[in-house]
Amino acid sequence: MKFKRIIVIVMDSVGAGDAPDAAAFGDAGADTVGHIDARVPLRVPNLRRLGWGNIAHIHREPTEVIGSYGLMEEQSAGKDTTSGHWEFMGNIVETPFPTFPHAFPPDLLQAFTEKTGYGYIGNEIASGTEIIERLGPDHFRTGLPIIYTSADSVFQIAAHNDVIPLDELYRICEITRKEVCVGPYEVGRIIARPFIGTQGHFIRTGDRRDYSRLPKKKMVFSYLSESGRFVAGVGKIGDIYAHIGLTESYHTGDNPADMKALTEQLLAHRDREGLLMANFVDFDSQYGHRRNVEGYAACIEAFDNMLGHFLPLVQPDELLMITADHGNDPTWKGTDHTRERVPLVVYSPALTEAVDLGIRKTYADLGQTIMDNFSLGQLPSGTGFLSELR
């Protein structure tokens, strides 16, 4: 069976238990969904109907399963958004992106100053919400952007909209991407972090932008668009893939906006063949990194509620796949992502059996399934599961 449209939803950071190589990342025993459910029993009837109860470590509830389900393991040398998403589409990242456990070196920051025309404050490994509160007054006094990183391969630039206008912040980030973070400093992402408000009440806005490094391998998006099919990205999908191969992109600021845009685009493309892919970021950015278990649980439940309205819109000629790009166990030490297997559920009204898809040995199995559906050939990695669906 083949489908006219495929919809992929990525629940950013919603991992389902430590991967076989988790110990190498310091994450043996991490389990995002399992540890959340142990603290706050999750009410997720729609995800359960799709098979979550068979693959995630959550409390048992009698449920009729209408989706197929499995787990996927990452082969890329990282546990970040970029490496996970790229692997989905057939590009396994074999060399880790550079990270800066002791903050950025002087020569990198000198290049930043020379190329952008700005100095900086910060240069720390920090939580974004904490650093803008602490350095906000200096930011207003000096007019300088706040620079920081994390355990991920990121160069983050924060600025208040009243100090550095949004367009100027984006310009600084574009220069940093193209002229500063190059060569050995080519991080996975440059991230614009605009914020508003007053001291003690600073709020990061939904105008965040991610400037991804350019992939060196051809991925599924390009194969699809070159064949004349649409490839629509929702949320930060366009940023993650550097807009390569997308025919259209809809940037959004939070999960409800993601679902609204995803629904609108699903209905808008009913007469066309192609792929619609969305990243729902709130799980990770709002709750995972902040180690907020209760907030994370509420976010999953809110997503499940939205999913209950979305599932009836999926038609028999459409295939929905829901997964995650890495873990971010809010009960874990530190504030970093966690190396985990990720859940995979697959649904279409045309399918009549719930199939156990097992443990997939690479995220690229998802991309190869898309390739097989549209008869586009074989990726360098990945084994499709289209023929296993019933």
Rank of each mutant, 00 (worst) to 15 (best):
D167A: 12
E353D: 14
A354Y: 01
K79E: 11
Y120F: 15
Y118R: 09
I157M: 09
E74P: 00
F283G: 05
A298G: 10
T338G: 09
V65K: 02
Y170K: 14
Y296G: 07
R48S: 10
I175V: 15
N305Y: 09
R290Y: 08
Q315H: 04
R134K: 14
A158K: 11
E130H: 12
I300F: 07
V180I: 15
V314H: 06
P41F: 01
S127E: 07
G238Y: 05
H139I: 01
A28G: 02
T142C: 03
F283M: 11
R291Y: 07
A192Q: 08
L379D: 02
G358Q: 03
T198H: 04
R5E: 09
S222E: 12
F100A: 04
Q265W: 10
L389D: 11
Q199W: 08
A30H: 05
A364Q: 00
R208V: 08
G238L: 09
L313N: 06
Q265E: 13
P62E: 10
G233M: 13
Y118M: 10
W332Y: 10
V281H: 07
I300N: 02
A302F: 08
I359V: 14
I237F: 01
P45T: 11
I132V: 15
D21S: 05
V180K: 13
A103Y: 12
I121R: 11
K236Y: 05
E301W: 08
L357S: 10
P215D: 00
F303E: 11
F3C: 05
A302N: 13
A158L: 08
E64M: 10
